[in-house]
Each structure stands twice: as C-alpha cells, then as structure tokens.
Amino acid sequence: MENEPKKRKRTSGLLRDKERTKQKMIQSVGKILLKKGYTGLNATAVSKEAGVDKSLVYSYFGSLDNLVETYILQRDFLNAVAKDDLVVMLENTTAVPKEAIYGLLHNQLDTLLKDKVLQKIIHWELGENKTYLRNIADKREELGEAFFKVAEPTYDKANIDLRGILAVLISGVYYLVLHAKTNGSLFCGIDLNTPEGEQRIKDAITSIILMAHEKTTAS
C-alpha cells in the first residue's frame, strides 16, 4: 500500500485543461487575423477555429474584446517581445546607452518585417477606434515612461528632445514596414523588402541616435 501511486488531483487536471483551452482560443485570434483580417473576428469564428463552444469566449474571458486584447498583448513589441530586455536595461543602469536605444529600434524593425500578424495589428490600430486597442497603446506608454525616466535626463541637459526624436523614428518604422509589406513599392527609392534596404534604414536610425548622443557629450 505504501508504494501505491497517488491519484492525480482532478482539480489540477481541470485547471490545466482550462488553460490549454484558453491558449487555443487566444491562438485562434491570430489565425483569424491572418486568414480574414480584423473584420473577420467574432466569437463564432474564434470558437470554430479553436474547436470549442462559443460560450467559453465569455465564461473564460468575459468578452470577445478581452480575448482579443489578451492575444495582442502577447504579440505586441514593447509589451511582449522587448519587455524583458527593456526591464533589464532599466534595472541595471542609471542611463541608457546609445547602443541600447538604436538596438531597440533595430529589433522593432526586424520584428515588424517578419511578423505578419503584428503588421495587421498596427494597421488595425490606425484604422479602428477600439477600447482594447487604446488599452494596449496606454500600456506601451507606461513602459515608455519608465524608459524615458532613465534615458531622458542625459539628453535634456543638452536640450535634445529624445521623445520627439523617438516618436518620429518609431512611427517611421511603422509606416515604412506597412508601406513595404502592403504594396511592395519603394519609398524614397529604398526597397525595404531587400536586405540592402533594411540595412539602410537601420543605418539611418543609428546615425540619428548617434548625432543626438554626440550633442550630449559636447555640452
């Protein structure tokens, strides 16, 4: 009797089953975005793609909007892809190195160029007024504020508007990627769909950050 294996607790098994089902539903959002775009997202489509009852969308997530927000947060660049790097960067320094700034932007460019779902999400944010899209944008801003709290003082002393510079660069990355991936045309004669074009944009980003940083050392 002493060596008899313990019976698995049913409760823990149910919790694991529930979590697996939730993950299937979350992943279904991305599959629908790729197949049909955001106009194809509804509770019926999600339940069909995931192979679950539609009622689970509401019992597990409260609403379709909550489910979609959960999915986007798992794919968002700052809230997911770069979050850990950003946290480590801010915990281990009293100033953000210039290499870390343009490296973050290079990473964002790489991620957006490769991630078709993320491209659709950015396009969605630009064309739709949704509460969950605003919530995600606000969460990005919270991370951004933590970054600027550490990075900005160095540039403020030299009268350099780091926020303005990064606003232009980040929005430029968004637009250039969407432009290149939507119709494949050139922008200022640069083809971002080629390694050479991608490198030119990265070099331009690096140059702008370095020029701004040089002013901080000269002041």
Rank of each mutant, 00 (worst) to 15 (best):
L118P: 00
Y175P: 05
L64H: 05
L166E: 00
D115R: 01
S28L: 01
K139Y: 06
E198R: 14
E91M: 07
T111V: 06
L64V: 12
T94N: 13
D85E: 04
K83F: 12
I121C: 02
E49S: 15
I32F: 02
D203R: 03
T194C: 00
L56M: 05
M211Y: 00
S207C: 10
Y175T: 14
M25K: 08
K54W: 06
H179I: 06
E125H: 12
I26F: 04
Q108W: 05
K48I: 13
P5I: 15
W124V: 00
R140I: 06
E145F: 10
E198V: 14
K35A: 10
D161R: 08
Y60V: 03
P153A: 08
I122M: 00
E145A: 14
V88C: 13
K149F: 11
T182N: 14
Y58K: 04
A204H: 08
R75Y: 08
V87W: 10
L109E: 14
T70E: 10
P97S: 06
S219F: 05
Y175W: 10
Y132R: 07
L105M: 10
K202S: 12
D65S: 11
V87F: 10
V88G: 10
Q119G: 11
L105E: 15
K18V: 04
S185L: 12
L112D: 07
F148M: 13
H213L: 02
